[in-house]
Simulated scan of single mutants.
Amino acid sequence: MSKEQPFFRVNNYEILGEILEEWARDHQTWPENWSEFIQVLEERGAGPVVPDGFGEPELAFHLLVDGKMNISLPTKTMLDAANIAVGLQKKRYIFPSQYDLAYTGSLDENITPPKRKKVQRARLADYCISLCM
C-alpha cells in the first residue's frame, strides 16, 4: 500500500468522468461487481490504482434526486484513512490529477502541515456538498 495514497484513485479523472457520464445516462451499463468495475476502468484507460489490502468492495450506485440537496458523507474509516494520508505526506500535499486540467504551472508542493489539513477539509466539504454538476 502506498504510504502517500492509501486509498483507491485513478490516474485519469477525465476518462473516469466520461465513464460516469455514460453510467448516469444508461443504468444498464453499470458494472455488476468490483472486478467488472476495475476491468471497465482499465479497458477505457482510466488507470485505476488499487492499494494493497483494499479488497473487492461491493459497488453501490446512488442516483441523485432533482430538487434535493444531496450530501455525501465519507465513512469514519474513509475519513481516518484520508487524514492519515495527509499526515504521511511529509514533503508534498498530493492533489488528484484533475487539478492539472484547471491550473497551469505547478501547485505549491511545500504546503505546511497546518495548511495541508485546511486544504484537506476544504476538499472534503466540496465533495460532501457537491451536486455532481
Rank of each mutant, 00 (worst) to 15 (best):
P96L: 04
I19E: 02
C132S: 12
I19N: 01
G17H: 06
L20C: 10
I129R: 01
E32P: 00
A60M: 11
S72Y: 10
F37N: 04
L41S: 04
L41N: 03
P74V: 00
E109T: 08
E56N: 12
C128E: 00
V119I: 13
S106I: 04
C132G: 05
E22W: 03
Q5L: 14
G53Q: 10
G17C: 06
M78I: 05
G53D: 14
Y99H: 08
F61N: 07
E109N: 09
C128T: 00
G53R: 12
A82L: 12
E36L: 03
D26H: 09
C132K: 09
D100A: 15
D66Q: 14
V86L: 12
V65Q: 14
L131Q: 14
D66V: 07
A81Q: 11
F54Y: 13
Q98V: 10
A60E: 15
T29A: 12
D26F: 00
A122I: 08
G53T: 07
F7V: 05
I71T: 06
L20T: 04
K68E: 13
P57R: 12
A85N: 05
V49N: 08
T112P: 01
S106Q: 11
T112M: 12
E43T: 10
N70H: 13
R116N: 04
N12W: 02
I111S: 07
D26M: 02
E56D: 13
V10R: 01
H62M: 10
S35E: 12
P113N: 04
K90F: 12
S106R: 13
W34M: 02
L124A: 06
